[in-house]
Nucleic acid binder design. Structure first.
Length: 560
DNA sequence: AGTCGATGCTCCC
DNA sequence: TGGGAGCCCTCGAC
């Protein structure tokens, strides 16, 4: 009996067989066959479904006539390409490849299922503890800053229910969000195509998208502190723009590719951006490690560009300290976050380098006192420095959290709650899914960065996509999320109910072409609620969200 | 329901 | 340092 004939535990498809007596002369193949057999034994023991396929082709190149080609269907792990196990979704639960390090904490020896960081997110985190250096900066902190940070933590208010949304607001994935500084209902959103959305979520059906400002990824935007009708934006097309929100008219303040496309080695993209209101400066950083300053009064570049990160690497984040705007925090792909003094900016003049193990997606000073730093790195760790006046050699805390890099997703950024006086609440989307009543959902996490504890995980059975872009409202208990091409507004449950009393929850489906309901004004669509969970496990889904009419909308006409 | 492809980015050699 | 291989929980179209 040949080896192939004995293989009975999985389906076999013989495409062509010339002669049963012909055997492959290739020794290596013989060995492989043996390996396969032992794997088969495991499969029988496991008694699992056979999925995947492996084509075994006997070369028989030295023989005349046709070679036998046997394709056997058996399970192959798509991660490590070995047999005997399989990674992937089994229903709503993702099974990791046991041959790889933990997908969550990146350590070997276990998978995410029993990773201690998944069981308890605060695992291994040292609760609030400030390293005292007893130097003069510590003294300054005690005198000037400490009283701004209350020692008693207020109760966190979590916006945990979808209040309104526009499905497919953008034609490409959302890259950034920004709330209007004075108008509570205006949300700005940028997308991968460079389009800028202006959404008044008080009037859900009204949708404005400016498509002619940038030609690719809108990476960051900020409102002008001098004029809240004006917004600055940095894009991968190499331009930094200043746009009037009323008219949509845009002025390019900087174009780093004035000669157009000259090849990938010279094409400059703008990523990190922030404003220094005191000095009237826009700070932007590019993909070659340089920082550029633009004077908003003269609309011209100020000084020379300065290399602030390793030459040739992206600088993805810039943040001016809210308390001392001359302090600048940058982060980038050279695995560093850096603190700078804008008054003394030159290459290698940074006050402090904060090393990370991998690329740093974001680095922010705390929003009120500016004395803390939170960074998000693609090594699946949120790092916290409790005081920029203290010892910055090592972070005060490292919180393991799933926010891996994926080329199809906007990079995750942990964002402060600007309303939290204790400066300890942070919001960040989660990459890996969890099984919630038979649905694989990717929640949005609220984390207390002083303890590493998961304060809340916010999800909706209808949002099955990953939500990497999140922004908390500067004044209201509102969370804005960008998930794929859609925008969501969350409010706390009780408040949501109050709002609904006078105006029902509003979910609008955009994109005429892809929606069978056709019209933005059409209120009958259930595209949102009909979305399936992972692996089509939609049976146990609670249909809590439906497309409801906007009662205040005057445009109530049905298409015949 | 299952497959496929668009593709940017990281990191290793 | 440059080039290129490879990429584990995408997402949406067909």
């Amino acid at each position: 009996m040949s080896a192939r004939a004995r293989r009975t535990s999985f389906p076999e498809v013989v495409i062509e067989r010339d002669s049963d007596t012909e055997k492959s002369s290739d020794d290596e193949e013989e060995v492989e066959d043996d390996v396969v057999e032992s794997d088969d034994q495991e499969e029988e023991d496991d008694n699992e479904e056979q999925k995947g396929k492996e084509a075994e082709v006997s070369s028989a190149a030295n023989k005349k006539g046709k070679a036998p080609i046997t394709i056997s269907l058996k399970k192959v792990c798509k991660v490590c390409k070995r047999t005997g196990h399989q990674a992937g979704f089994q229903g709503p639960t993702y099974i990791d490849c046991p041959m790889k390090p933990c997908f969550l904490c990146k350590l070997p020896g276990h998978t995410t299922v029993n990773c201690p960081h998944r069981v308890a997110m605060e695992f291994g985190v040292i609760p609030a503890y400030r390293k005292r250096t007893n130097n003069s900066l510590d003294y300054v902190f005690e005198r000037q800053v400490r009283h701004r940070v209350p020692s008693i933590k207020p109760e966190f208010v979590i916006p945990d229910e979808v209040n309104c949304a526009v499905i497919r607001y953008h034609s490409r994935r959302v890259t950034c969000l920004e709330f209007h500084p004075t108008n509570n209902n205006i949300l700005l959103s940028g997308d991968k195509k460079g389009q800028l959305g202006v959404w008044d979520f008080g009037k859900v059906h009204e949708k404005t998208v400016y498509g002619n400002i940038h030609s690719c990824l809108l990476n960051n935007m900020k409102f002008s502190p001098a004029n809240d009708g004006t917004v600055y934006a940095a894009s991968s097309d190499g331009t930094m723009s200043c746009t009037d929100l009323e008219t949509g008219l845009s002025t390019p303040l900087m174009d780093l590719n004035p000669n157009g496309w000259q090849g990938p080695n010279s094409w400059t993209m703008l990523y990190g951006m922030d404003l220094n209101a005191e000095k009237g400066l826009v700070l932007v950083a590019d993909n070659f490690g340089f920082l550029h300053l633009v004077d908003t009064r003269s609309n011209s570049q100020k000084g020379n560009s300065i290399l602030i990160h390793k030459k040739g690497t992206k600088v993805v984040g810039l943040h001016c300290n809210p308390f001392q705007p001359d302090l600048l925090l940058s982060c980038g792909n050279d695995h560093f976050a850096r603190i700078w003094d804008i008054r003394r900016l030159e290459a290698e003049s940074c006050l402090q380098s904060l090393p990370h193990k991998r690329v740093v997606n974001s680095a922010y000073f705390s929003p009120i006192s500016g004395s803390k730093i939170v960074t998000t790195s693609i090594d699946n760790r949120i790092r916290v420095w409790d005081s920029i006046f203290g010892n910055l050699e090592t972070p005060s805390r490292e919180i393991v959290h799933s926010h891996d890099f994926n080329r199809h997703l906007t990079p995750f950024r942990a964002e402060w709650d600007p309303k939290d006086p204790s400066e300890s609440l942070v919001v960040v989307g989660r990459y890996i899914s969890e099984n919630y009543n038979g649905l694989a959902l990717h929640p949005i996490d609220f984390i207390d960065i002083s303890t590493g504890q998961l304060v809340a995980e916010v999800m909706d059975p209808n949002i099955t996509t990953i939500t990497p872009v999140n922004k908390l409202h500067p004044r209201d208990d509102v969370l804005a999320s960008g998930s794929s091409r859609s925008l969501f507004i969350w409010r706390p449950k009780e408040k949501s109910e109050m709002v609904q009393e006078k105006d029902e929850r509003k979910i609008v489906v955009c994109d005429r072409k892809n929606s069978k309901f056709g019209d933005d004004d059409d209120d009958s669509g259930d595209d949102f609620s009909s979305k399936k969970g992972k692996n089509g496990k939609s049976k146990s889904k609670k249909p809590i969200l439906v497309t409801t009419p906007c009662s205040s909308s005057k445009k109530k006409k049905k298409k015949s």
